[in-house]
């Protein structure tokens, strides 16, 4: 399930390749995009199955409503564009036409989080998980690497109902391997210790794994749980069990600390096992332009900053 050595691979390519594989086995798979097919990589599907690909132009509301229409005509509709537009620009279409009718529409938001980079705040989705997580019927997934994107797309295809999957722009180091499968009921335990419980989701995973290694070198042993499925949150027991052992909890995400993984974990713990939680992510602010790696450091999401903040927290 875990890769022996890390390679840098494109999660967006994983999306395009997964679509092509699904298109091959099921003629009911259709794909929509809003003028970003070359960026989201839905263009791979467009080349292979042009008759089942719909580029609606720069019209996200139209895209989501058309996806709803295709779904009630019996199709499994994947609709992709940048995360910020896929969730914000057409929120009411998602709410009223997709989620309320519980349709088989899979919304894929690429370029999620601050790591969009140079385009700056208008294009950095730091609120997309919060928006999608509040909708009834919606499943929310935030895979971390190439292999996990494939596993999540496959899981969404096999599971009836609306999905939101957020995918980063950046090419990330692989943590998982080819035979990794998404398990909605469990978190993925990547380290075991009793000094602190570290929870993460999405693109940061490699940085968090490295941060946990840094902590280990300083004699601090963390349990690390990777949490690809944020809603419905079915892995409560894993969190509660580890929180009981560790007593202190840290959440890390490339998303606002409001409404994302941090909020999810706080909700679970405050209802079941009240625990002191530190939420690391983008604080209540908009992002800015910069290279992705510079922004990661600026917003304290690099391994050294994460390790530093955890040490201060558990002191």
């Amino acid at each position: 399930m875990l890769s022996k050595e890390r390679t840098v691979k494109s999660p967006r390519n994983a999306y395009g390749e997964a679509l092509c594989a699904l298109g091959e086995i099921d003629k009911n798979v259709v794909v929509l995009d809003a003028d970003l097919a070359a960026s989201t990589q839905s263009g791979m599907f467009a080349k292979k199955f042009p008759e089942r690909f719909f580029d609606v132009g720069i019209a996200e509301q139209d895209m989501i409503s058309q996806a709803a229409g295709l779904a009630i005509a019996g199709k499994i509709a994947f609709a992709s564009t940048f995360a910020v537009f896929a969730t914000g620009r057409c929120y009411d279409q998602i709410r009223a036409s997709v989620a309320y009718s519980n349709l088989n529409v899979k919304i894929i938001g690429t370029h999620a989080g601050i790591t969009v980079g140079e385009d700056g705040a208008t294009h950095q989705a730091n609120e997309d998980i919060a928006l999608m997580r509040s909708l009834p019927n919606m499943t929310v997934l935030a895979p971390s690497d190439y292999y996990e994107v494939k596993a999540c797309v496959e899981y969404a295809y096999k599971t009836q109902g609306p999905f939101y999957i957020r995918i980063p722009r950046t090419n990330t180091e692989t943590i998982f391997s080819k035979n990794y499968k998404h398990d909605p009921l469990r978190t993925v335990e990547l380290a075991k210790g009793e000094d602190v419980l570290v929870c993460t989701t999405g693109e940061n995973l490699a940085n968090v794994v490295d941060a946990v290694e840094i902590l280990k070198s300083k004699g601090i042993f963390a349990t690390l749980l990777h949490i690809p499925q944020i809603k419905p949150f079915l892995a409560k027991d894993d969190i509660i069990k580890s929180a009981k052992a560790c007593k202190k909890v840290v959440t890390i995400e490339n998303h606002s600390i409001i409404g994302g993984l941090g909020s999810t974990i706080c909700e679970v713990l405050s209802e079941n096992y009240p625990t002191h939680v530190l939420r690391i992510g983008v604080n209540d602010c908009f992002g800015q332009s910069g290279k992705a790696e510079d922004l990661v450091k600026y917003y304290n999401l690099d391994s050294n900053s994460i390790a530093q903040r955890i040490m201060e927290f558990i002191k």
């Binding site: 409503s65 229409g69 036409s97």
Partner: peptide, 20 residues
Amino acid sequence: EISTGSLGQGLSIGVGVAQG
């Protein structure tokens, strides 16, 4: 066929159905 009520969505839904 589908839940409606928030205005301005039915036509694009129809376009999706027509293509399906």
